[in-house]
Amino acid sequence: IADILDYLGVEKVYSDASYADVVVPRTVGLSQADAQSLLQSKGLGYRVVGDGAVVTDQIPSQGVSIPGKSEVVLYLGAEKPTEQVEVPDLTRKTPGAAEQALEKLGLYMRASGVTTYSDSTISTSQSIAAGTMVEPGTVVEVHFMDTAVQDYAANGNIDSIH
């Protein structure tokens, strides 16, 4: 059925609850252990920057909606970066490469489009244009498609879709 939906051009939606958006809780003022426990209970990962006993800042901020299983950066006595970062061009990147490019800059990816990835899955568009300056912690929606299915449909080779 999934292949038929791709052939018909019907966009699939992620239904895996573990990747559903999660609202980031407030961790500022909590101990590192309490902050980590809170994030884990929400299905979020974490990364610690700096030394200290108490969370002094976080990226993304409290109340921001990010994809489940994303990583929240906890600052312990360290200064949170204030300079903006440039959104990279994610066109024609694999899901892994797009996510890695965004994570390197402190940005988050929300994927849309196909629900299963293959070697022929690439990004076709992004919600924030390449070159735009944004705050660290910004979520960029990236749309993916399977080019193999599109190639089969374009060539009229319906028998090859399986």
Rank of each mutant, 00 (worst) to 15 (best):
I4T: 12
L5S: 15
D6Q: 11
L8E: 11
L8K: 05
L8I: 06
G9Q: 03
V10I: 14
E11P: 10
E11L: 08
K12G: 13
K12A: 14
K12Y: 10
V13R: 13
V13M: 15
Y14P: 11
D16G: 03
D16M: 06
D16Y: 01
D16L: 05
S18H: 00
Y19H: 08
A20C: 06
A20M: 06
D21L: 12
D21S: 15
D21M: 14
D21G: 14
V22T: 10
V22Y: 01
V23E: 14
V23Q: 14
V23Y: 06
V24W: 05
V24H: 05
P25W: 00
P25Q: 02
R26V: 12
T27L: 15
T27P: 11
T27G: 15
G29N: 05
G29K: 04
L30H: 00
S31L: 07
S31N: 07
Q32R: 12
Q32S: 10
A33I: 10
A35K: 04
A35Q: 06
A35M: 09
A35T: 09
Q36V: 12
Q36L: 10
S37P: 09
L38A: 12
L38Y: 01
L39K: 01
L39Y: 00
Q40E: 12
Q40R: 07
Q40W: 01
S41C: 06
S41K: 04
S41W: 00
S41R: 02
K42G: 14
K42W: 01
G43N: 00
G43P: 00
G43K: 00
G43M: 00
L44E: 04
G45E: 08
Y46G: 07
R47W: 04
R47L: 11
V49D: 05
V49T: 06
G50N: 03
D51W: 11
G52P: 08
A53Y: 04
T56M: 04
T56K: 03
D57C: 09
D57R: 08
D57M: 09
D57K: 07
I59Y: 07
I59L: 15
I59S: 10
I59N: 07
P60N: 09
P60D: 14
S61V: 13
S61K: 13
S61D: 15
Q62M: 11
Q62A: 14
Q62N: 13
G63A: 08
G63W: 07
G63P: 13
V64R: 11
V64L: 12
S65K: 14
S65I: 13
I66G: 08
I66R: 03
I66Y: 03
I66C: 07
G68Q: 01
K69W: 09
K69L: 13
K69F: 10
E71M: 11
E71R: 14
E71D: 11
V72F: 02
V72Y: 01
V73R: 04
V73S: 05
L74V: 07
Y75K: 00
Y75F: 03
Y75M: 00
Y75V: 01
L76P: 04
L76H: 02
L76R: 02
G77E: 05
A78R: 01
A78V: 02
E79Q: 10
E79A: 09
E79R: 06
E79D: 11
E79C: 02
P81A: 01
P81R: 02
P81D: 02
P81M: 02
T82K: 06
T82V: 13
E83Q: 09
Q84V: 15
Q84R: 15
Q84I: 11
V85S: 00
